[in-house]
Simulated scan of single mutants.
Amino acid sequence: MMNRRTIMSLLSAVLVSGLLGGGAFAQSLRDITFVQPSPSAINSFPVFVAIGEGYFEDEGLNVTVEAINGSGAVLQALSAGQAHFGRPGPGPLIAARTRGVNAVHIYNVAARSNFGIAVQEGSDHQSIEDLRGKVIGTGTADGAEVGFARNVLSSAGMVEGTDFEFLTVGDGGPATAAFLNGEIDAYSASTADTAVLNQRGMKVRDITPAEFGRFFGNGIATMADTVANDRELVEGWSRAFAKGHAFALDDANRDAVLAHLAAGNPQEGEDKEFQAALFDAVRSKTIAAGDSPHLGWYPAQVWEEWQDALVAGNEISGPLDDLSAIWTNEFAELGNSAVGK
């Protein structure tokens, strides 16, 4: 006959087993929200891969993805506490900091520029200078593509409102219609936007000078308060995200990756050939050229160049007091150190 101590030991073992296993005793996951500036799962592929492979779940996180319109809206959602992480562009982030939005970039997703200024394939426009006096279409009014295009055009000595104009036309079908109707002469497009236009029969070509490839694009951001007061969350997110990124870069995992992306956005997965081509294009922009020590790394010099471009374009009145406060390589380094573990 078992004594009381034996019975209590067995009950404790059952309880612990339940807590570590499934069922009613399973550990509850923390619900968090990630906001992206477009519906594309491919543009945020490390997130969807990390969800599909269970990397977020391993960190105790249940991630809900919400798509909103542009980087400005992403930063508003972060500031309002409606999301924990987002994927805004560097230009909108710098501008938001001048308005007191204390967001911080923690992972450089688009390490090479994922934007370009495109014209119709048969257009006479061969260089940026040819766009003097023209109308440039954009997907959103305050997204990263606007700051990027302004930077490129200002480098050629052009001033918005005098030498060129922006017109918000949306993406996909509306952008195609704007070209066909003669409303725009060029379009500031992401890699995904360009692929969609070409896939829909609106053949375009990129005339952006090659030197602008160093201007990294959208990255993962959170609020400075989250970094300071909820560090465990930021570290867990960073480990899972980096694992998702690394998994997706391995061609051996290609079929699984595309399946995860189709689950994230079924419409993108309907045309398998297009989905695969777009993924390849977007994925290639996440690998930095040069001597980057790890994935997600930010070069300080390009942050300075981004800020200089915003000042020159009158998007901000002057430099930030401390530009280094709006980005960090710490969490990307931490995340990459966890890959393979």
Rank of each mutant, 00 (worst) to 15 (best):
G157R: 11
T33K: 10
G122L: 13
W303S: 00
I128Y: 09
P293M: 06
V49A: 06
Q307R: 05
W237V: 08
L153V: 06
M2I: 10
A277Y: 04
T194L: 14
S155P: 02
D225G: 07
H245V: 10
V14D: 08
S324W: 08
H245G: 09
G182H: 06
H125V: 15
I94R: 03
R30P: 00
Q76T: 15
W306A: 01
G213L: 05
L10W: 14
D250E: 12
A300N: 13
T222I: 02
D250C: 02
S38W: 04
F164C: 09
N108S: 07
D58H: 05
G89M: 10
E315S: 05
A96K: 03
G23E: 10
P266I: 07
D230M: 00
N102F: 08
M2D: 14
V104G: 00
P209F: 10
I106V: 06
Q82G: 09
N336K: 03
Q36K: 15
Q120N: 14
N218P: 10
G81H: 06
A224F: 00
V74C: 15
Y55A: 07
S17R: 12
F179P: 00
L249I: 07
N108R: 02
S9R: 13
M2C: 01
S44N: 11
N108E: 00
V204A: 09
A111R: 08
A288S: 11
A186N: 01
G143A: 04
Q267E: 15
A300V: 14
A77V: 12
T162E: 14
F34C: 02
F34V: 05
L20M: 13
M2W: 14
L11W: 08
D142C: 13
G100L: 09
V65H: 07
F274M: 12
G313T: 14
V152L: 11
G18L: 13
V169H: 06
S337E: 15
Q76S: 15
L15G: 14
D185W: 10
S292T: 09
T191K: 07
L78R: 09
M2N: 13
S38Q: 07
S17P: 06
D163M: 10
Q199P: 06
R254A: 11
F241Y: 14
S284L: 11
D58W: 01
S79G: 15
V135M: 12
F274T: 11
I128R: 05
A77C: 10
F56T: 14
L20R: 08
G81Y: 08
F34M: 02
T191V: 15
L20K: 05
A281G: 08
A118K: 08
A192N: 14
T191Q: 09
F216G: 00
G143E: 07
P90N: 05
R283F: 01
A178Y: 01
A192Y: 09
D58T: 07
V169Y: 03
T64R: 15
R200T: 13
H125D: 12
A50G: 09
F247G: 05
T176F: 06
V302M: 04
D206K: 03
I94W: 08
A141M: 13
G116Y: 09
F279W: 07
G182L: 04
A309I: 01
Q275I: 01
G86F: 06
N198H: 05
T33D: 03
S38C: 10
Q307C: 09
E160I: 03
S123L: 06
G21F: 02
A144F: 05
L197Y: 08
A141H: 11
G236Y: 02
F148C: 02
S188N: 05
D225Q: 08
Y187L: 00
G161Y: 09
L131K: 04
